[in-house]
Design a protein around this nucleic acid. Sequence first.
DNA 1: ATCAACTTGTGAAGAAAATAACAAAGTTGA
DNA 2: TCAACTTTGTTATTTTCTTCACAAGTTGAT
Lengths: 216, 216
Amino acid sequence: MGNETMKIPQATAKRLPLYYRFLNNLHSSGKQRVSSAELSEAVKVDSATIRRDFSYFGALGKKGYGYNVNYLLTFFRNTLDQDELTKVALIGVGNLGTAFLNYNFLKNNNTKIAVAFDVAEEKIGSAVGDIPIFHMNDLEEVIKREKIGVAILTVPSQFAQTITDRLVGADVKGILNFTPARLTVPSSIRVHHIDLAVELQSLVYFLKHYSESEQE
Amino acid sequence: MGNETMKIPQATAKRLPLYYRFLNNLHSSGKQRVSSAELSEAVKVDSATIRRDFSYFGALGKKGYGYNVNYLLTFFRNTLDQDELTKVALIGVGNLGTAFLNYNFLKNNNTKIAVAFDVAEEKIGSAVGDIPIFHMNDLEEVIKREKIGVAILTVPSQFAQTITDRLVGADVKGILNFTPARLTVPSSIRVHHIDLAVELQSLVYFLKHYSESEQE
DNA sequence: ATCAACTTGTGAAGAAAATAACAAAGTTGA
DNA sequence: TCAACTTTGTTATTTTCTTCACAAGTTGAT
């Protein structure tokens, strides 16, 4: 344990951004120290799980004291590579896409939507904030030029696979897929699916079949 | 196994809506039978996992043949209570909220956004499709009158907890939270969090630290 | 100084989920 | 009718994740 080069469990890795954001909140509100119990209350993750998660990175806390917010924050900033800006492309500027364009990922995450694509002529050439909207035809060219490695896919599902193939061709390594389609990609490409209908449906299923809620 | 009243593993329950949708697709395209291997290819879930998932509901397939699409579909329709319409409230008609309003959940899921709420005067009284938009002030009254048990929360995060408290007061049992806030609710209420920034951030983390992708 | 109170980090146990592997049963085509 | 093939359902195994529980270190009040 505590070997920084070792791979962290996936479940832990998924919680890191969450921890990071709440530590930022604490920092902003002037808090100097925090215990795993307090953090647990805030992020709704068992305190033992939090301590275990942190322990993969070594001994970050102090017994009887807790964690120094600043130290932890600095540590995670480095670990999460928050200093290096990650450029993201948004594919499909519909309602969902627009929601992303207006979302300030930069603030906490140092992740920036650098370019967007659509097919609607009236959108092309315009910009949302400082994010220019290109025509889908220019996908490969722009993505390669801007050296973009991550894409958010918010297009109608019937186009999802075709566009995915083009993204893979343009050397994109990660896709956040909001389409109901399940994408086929080479194994070197990572896809995270967020399926809104499935999320809603499974919530409904849990409500009907698991009356006493155990928090997800 | 095969006892319909027993509780299904959570991981399985989360995949059911996905299976259901793909079975619908298969049905629409005229397919009569399907093997776990084929389904696996389509939904990107290991075929053994699919067979295991199905087996919680009994022996739905036939050796050497696979599964009858129609039979499976009918079975899941009943199991997932697809015949009973679930009414949902949407809280916050911004870009993200509007994306939901335009999403036809009814089609596959028999889940319907019945009402929406916002505070912007120009939106109140209007409707998106057949979904009326009410003022946030009328939240409790409308939700109780319409007997709504599920809410989708797409409001600015600073209002999330206050509105959640009101939803709980109006007898909502499940909340799909798109806000970065982690909500505090009584244990009888179920909350599913979908945190867009965390999703994006954790995808970026995986790309940087797990070069050879194991699909999530 | 002393000591009660606090809180971490982790070994051990437990729970949940995924995967492997294969007998049994059914299908298909000759 | 039979042999080759297919595919399930499930048992066993492995992997992953969570939680318990507590020794050991630290704090802070007196």
